[in-house]
Design a binder for these strands. Structure first.
Lengths: 155, 155
DNA sequence: TGCAATGTTTGCTATACTACATATATGTCA
DNA sequence: TGACATATATGTAGTATAGCAAACATTGCA
């Protein structure tokens, strides 16, 4: 135990497994409501506000026509709403509906609840140290050009 | 800043986003080789050794017939091998091939590399604290009945 | 006005996942 | 041996993702 990078990496890898597990379980709630690509689209809309179909496609790295049909299904489920853009009548603006927002909220809530659950079990002294360490880590990670939000995995 | 649970949760949530982002990017490498369900199957085989098709189906929570065809595709790609079980000739044992193992290794390596990259940027003192905090977190998380490995997200 | 560029949708095709019902092979027990 | 249970595979069918090509609507500019 010397605080070397290697040891930190090992610890982070272990924490990574745990936190990814939490993230996956939080998605379990909605897996029969929306598919993963659909969920990703919702996350993009939540974090970046309403978008054109084209922008959405670009962000998700899918073909515009695929985005159209993905929106078909999300709209069919009442999770998004399509409106003609106010700026240009050929553009279609996609917005989260209250139901879509609620779905995302339920995922985050579940995630927070579980993380909170785990944090409660930490020794107070360790917990104090964890805050600084984890914030520092998140900050350091943030310096990397972040594409994860594109994939809808970050919330 | 009082070291309360809420603050820890916030920090963990931030770290979670960062680490999940890392995990997702590490999967990006292989996304045109295997699908997510296929990857999950490989992870199960890696972490739990060779399995029957039936057990695999159960662990992945999919129908046995779905597992059969998933194995068809993985075998077609040379990532797994099917053999008649030594115990019973009606059972089929599924094993990772060296190629399958290599694929998983490449994902983990990419993950380690990126985490290492981030860890390097941490202040040595913080890094020291991070090790303890994250190990404690991973340990605390481990006490929860963990189903994440079922989903193939933990490695 | 007419024509090119832009944004979205639709037609088509292919692959994968999914399950249910059924078939086949094997094991087990009476 | 014969009947039943178990393990896997195959037939069939529905849904989602995905991309390419083509149609369509709209914008903007010459």
């Amino acid at each position: 135990m010397d605080g070397s990078v290697g040891e930190t990496t090992r610890a982070l890898l272990a924490a990574s497994r745990a936190l990814v597990g939490v993230a996956v379980r939080s998605l379990g709630t909605i897996e029969d409501t929306v598919t993963l690509p659909q969920y990703r689209a919702l996350v993009v809309l939540a974090s970046h506000g309403e978008q054109n179909v084209g922008i959405l496609a670009e962000v998700l790295a899918i073909h515009p026509s695929t985005a159209t049909r993905l929106c078909d299904r999300l709209a069919g489920k009442g999770l998004i709403e399509r409106n003609t853009s106010t700026e240009s009548r050929r553009e279609v603006t996609v917005t989260l509906t209250p139901a879509g927002r609620a779905l995302l909220r339920s995922v985050t809530q579940r995630r927070v609840r579980e993380i909170n659950n785990i944090a409660t079990r930490l020794d107070p002294k360790v917990r104090r140290a964890a805050i600084d360490a984890l914030n520092a880590f998140a900050a350091a990670a943030g310096e990397i050009p972040d594409v994860a939000w594109k994939l809808g995995w970050t919330s």
